[in-house]
């Protein structure tokens, strides 16, 4: 299982970019951490999610 924002998901083997798009994230508004490393946006398409990965997706909203 893969942990995404603290929730268990059965997505091992999926492409990280595809997963984020399917979840509806606007990539220009998020920061993605994979196993404690921040992932540059241009690398997302090259990453296959593995079992036991821990993914944190921080979605920003406007206002300040």
């Amino acid at each position: 299982m893969v942990t995404v924002n603290g929730e268990q998901k059965d997505i091992a083997g999926s492409n990280l970019y595809t997963f984020l798009k399917e979840e509806g994230y606007e990539l220009s508004r998020v920061v993605i951490e994979l196993n404690l490393d921040i992932i540059p946006k241009e690398e997302l398409e090259n990453i296959t999610i593995k079992d036991e990965d821990v993914i944190e997706v921080l979605r920003f909203v406007g206002g300040g």
């Binding site: 921040i38 920003f60 909203v61």
Partner: peptide, 18 residues
């Protein structure tokens, strides 16, 4: 990080942390 636009917020956090 004290920007207004969500895209600027994400950019700054990403760039500073990396």
């Amino acid at each position: 990080e004290a920007f207004d636009a969500a895209e600027q917020k994400a950019m700054l956090v990403q760039e500073v942390l990396t």
